[in-house]
Nucleic acid binder design. Structure first.
Lengths: 210, 210
DNA sequence: TCTCCATGTGTACAGTTGTTCACAATATGT
DNA sequence: ACATATTGTGAACAACTGTACACATGGAGA
């Protein structure tokens, strides 16, 4: 296959991606990063960059792919740990916050890419979010918590949920991860957002005709 | 006062801000703009930049101020035109979309600044959103549409509304403003988001204790 | 009217950028 | 074990960057 890797499978490649991510994590904006800057951070000579990426946009796209893995891991953990329905939202939010803190740079990158980056990166992130939305819809359907909603309305609900959580990401990244008080604030607010949305979903049919 | 202006009150200053905004409107990210680039676009010599701004971050902050004016104008129009409660949300969303199309570059800048920009710009935009949220809460209170909610819950609801609309901004900016079909899609989806939220708000008390 | 000061210009410079090219090292397939 | 394709290196380049300085200009307050 075209997938047989180089001698050490993408060691420098990883170093470059990690370096870019690290710069983003330090507050730099991905759009303002240059090739030389990234290679410098990675401890690599600038020319080597081109062995792995065509340009910075290319690197961005590959970062989105890795971001996808992070998101999937998060989803898996949520599926495994969120069992009883009553704590569903609070726990999901807690898991989300934990993953954000564990992969801060990745989520920085995601938040930045959502608005304004190279159109390709933007579309990829949006696509990841759509995937997340549809998986969430599947889960909810399976848990039989929303049987009165048709597919379209369920999808809308999940879309709104994912968006709200994604927006909370902005809050979360704006505060220090050590400021447990503020983190708790974000957790609570996000949880209440979700509760509000689901209260709306529970009573949605009754006003659908209006 | 310290406000007595230069001979022509901030003509070049405006040219620089407009130039930066125009570049952002063309797809560039604000964080990646340079002084020379902006002055070139404005038809000004690079050195002149320093007569008006200390650096690009400074210019960004002043752009946020102008953005505030745009938002206030939008709010005023909404207040004047949204009269009957039944069309409230659809009409508000329509007004929002119209303003975005009329000031595309400004909203591009806002969407970019929400995540990642200089911390000061980010905080300013967030502050604008908070202001918007509290004004919305005041209006709803005055219209007596949400009398069963206490202040805290009303504020949460409005917060979620503003966030949802702000996220729709991302959708809106991702499509061509001429693609009326897609714009209509965004309008409809956003409206349904708001309806879902308000259905939730209407039934909120009943589950508050849970 | 004269003077001052905010504003705009031109030149200059050292540092950085993206990218090319020829070359060195090395793991892989045979 | 050898040839080859893949990966890393160093030097080089022209283009661009932010910023400093000395200077021109013209409106406002006296």
């Amino acid at each position: 296959m075209a997938d047989k890797q180089r001698r050490k499978p993408g060691e420098t490649r990883d170093k470059l991606m990690t370096a870019a991510l690290s710069l983003v994590g330090k507050g730099r904006h991905f759009a303002s990063l240059g090739i030389r800057e990234v290679t410098r951070e990675a401890g690599i000579v600038p020319t080597s960059f081109y062995r792995h990426f065509r340009n910075m946009d290319d690197l961005g796209l590959q970062l989105v792919d890795e971001l996808g893995l992070v998101l999937r891991k998060m989803m898996r953990e949520a599926r495994a740990n969120v069992l009883q329905a009553d704590k569903l939202m609070a726990e999901s939010v807690a898991i989300f916050v934990r993953h954000v803190e564990a992969n801060r740079s990745f989520f920085f990158f995601m938040a930045q890419g959502l608005a304004g980056e190279s159109h390709a990166v933007q579309e990829s992130i949006r696509s990841e979010m759509r995937f997340f939305t549809s998986e969430l819809a599947n889960d909810l359907r399976r848990m039989r918590l929303v049987e009165h909603l048709n597919d379209r309305d369920l999808d809308m609900t999940c879309d709104l949920v994912v968006r709200s959580v994604a927006f909370s990401l902005t809050d979360l990244l704006g505060i220090s991860p050590d400021d447990e008080y503020q983190v708790e604030q974000v957790r609570n607010r996000t949880t209440r957002f979700l509760q509000l949305i689901f209260v709306g979903a529970a009573h949605w049919r009754s006003v659908e005709g209006s």
